[in-house]
C-alpha cells in the first residue's frame, strides 16, 4: 500500500511550521493514525509538515501547580515520565493502555487528541482531569477545555492552520485517587469502552468526582450526571453502583461487530464502577 504523492517539509522551528500550515499544508507528528489513512488513501494531503521532531513541542514541565505536556511528547514518554507518574498518574496510566510498544514509541499526545478517535484512550482521562488543550497558529494561541475541544467523531475545535501545541493537566494532590479501566478490542487494542475516574473524599463523603468515558458513543465525554450523583454523598459501594449505572444515559451508544449498543452501555456502567472503586482505593 503506497500513499499518494505529497510534498514533505521538515522545518526547524515552530514558527516556520505554522507559516507552512497557514498556506494549507497538513501536520504530521508520529503518524500513527495519519500514515495508515494515507496508505488506504482515505487521507491524501498534498503537503505535509513534519512537526514530530520540533524540540519546541517536546517537553514535560511543571509550572504554577500544573503540568504542561508538549504536543510532540510520545505515549511512551508520558507513560514513563517520573514527573507524570508522581504528580499525575492517571495520564501516565492511560498512555500505557494505548496500542503496543511500537505505537507508543512513535505516537504523540498532540496527534492523538487532534485526531479525536471516538475509541482513543486519552480523551477519557483528559475529561476526568479537567485538562486544557492549547492550540497555536500563526494568529496566536488559545486555550480550551476538553468539552470545548472535542466536538464530535474525529472532529475538534481546531481551525485550518492551527495545531495542538500542548496539553495541560493538574498536579493531583496526594488526596486524589485516579484510575483508567478499559475493556479493549483485543485485535486492535482500541477501547470498546474506557472509563477514567478521579475522586477525593473527606469525612466519608465524596468531595470531588470526575468521570470521563470513551468508546461508548461517537465522542468521548465527561459524565456529569455520574459526578453529580456522587458529590456530597456517602462513600458506599451502593452509591457508586447507582451513579455508575447512569453513565450511558442520554448517549447514542455505538453498535458494531464487537459490541452491540446495549452491551456497550452495560460495559460502560460496569467499567465506570470499576474505575470509581479503583480510584477510591487510591485516594487518601
Amino acid at each position: 500500500m503506497i500513499a499518494n504523492s505529497f510534498e514533505y517539509s521538515a522545518p526547524g522551528s515552530l514558527k516556520e511550521a505554522l507559516a507552512l500550515l497557514a498556506e494549507g499544508a497538513k501536520p504530521l507528528a508520529g503518524g500513527m493514525s495519519l500514515i495508515p489513512m494515507m496508505k488506504l488513501r482515505l487521507a491524501n494531503p498534498e503537503h505535509l509538515v513534519d512537526i514530530g521532531r520540533l524540540p519546541e513541542l517536546n517537553y514535560i514541565r511543571e509550572e504554577n501547580g500544573e503540568l504542561h505536556i508538549g504536543a510532540g511528547v510520545t505515549h511512551f514518554e508520558v507513560e514513563s515520565s517520573p514527573l507524570l507518574l508522581g504528580k499525575c498518574p492517571l495520564i501516565a496510566e492511560t498512555a500505557a493502555h494505548i496500542g503496543d510498544i511500537q505505537v507508543r514509541n512513535r505516537g504523540t499526545i498532540g496527534g492523538s487528541v487532534a485526531h479525536a478517535d471516538p475509541s482513543a484512550d486519552y480523551p477519557a482521562a483528559l475529561h476526568a482531569l479537567d485538562a486544557k488543550i492549547v492550540l497555536v497558529s500563526g494568529e496566536g494561541t488559545r486555550t480550551l477545555s476538553t468539552e470545548e475541544f472535542f466536538l464530535d467523531t474525529f472532529t475538534t475545535a481546531l481551525e485550518p492552520g492551527e495545531i495542538v501545541s500542548e496539553v495541560i493537566v493538574p498536579v493531583d494532590a496526594g488526596l486524589t485517587g485516579t484510575s483508567y479501566q478499559k475493556f479493549l478490542q483485543p485485535a486492535s487494542g482500541f477501547a470498546i469502552v474506557g472509563a477514567a475516574a478521579r475522586v477525593r473524599q473527606e469525612g466519608g463523603k465524596f468531595t470531588l468526582v470526575r468521570v470521563g468515558m470513551t468508546g461508548l458513543s461517537g465522542n468521548a465525554y465527561r459524565a456529569r450526571n455520574v459526578e453529580d450523583a456522587l458529590v456530597g454523598k456517602e462513600v458506599t459501594d451502593a452509591n457508586i453502583q447507582a451513579a455508575a449505572a447512569l453513565v450511558a444515559d442520554g448517549q447514542d451508544a455505538s453498535s458494531d461487530l464487537h459490541a452491540t449498543a446495549e452491551y456497550r452501555a452495560h460495559l460502560a456502567g460496569a467499567y465506570t464502577a470499576r474505575a470509581l472503586r479503583a480510584a477510591l482505593a487510591r485516594s487518601a
Binding site: Y8, A10, L28, G31, M32, I35, P36, D50, G52, R53, F76, I101, Q102, V103, N105, R106
Partner: peptide, 13 residues
C-alpha cells in the same frame, strides 16, 4: 533506540 513498525513510517522521517 526505539522499536518502531517500519511500514508505518516514511523514510524521510
Amino acid at each position: 533506540g526505539k522499536a518502531v513498525k517500519s511500514c508505518t513510517m516514511f523514510a524521510v522521517q
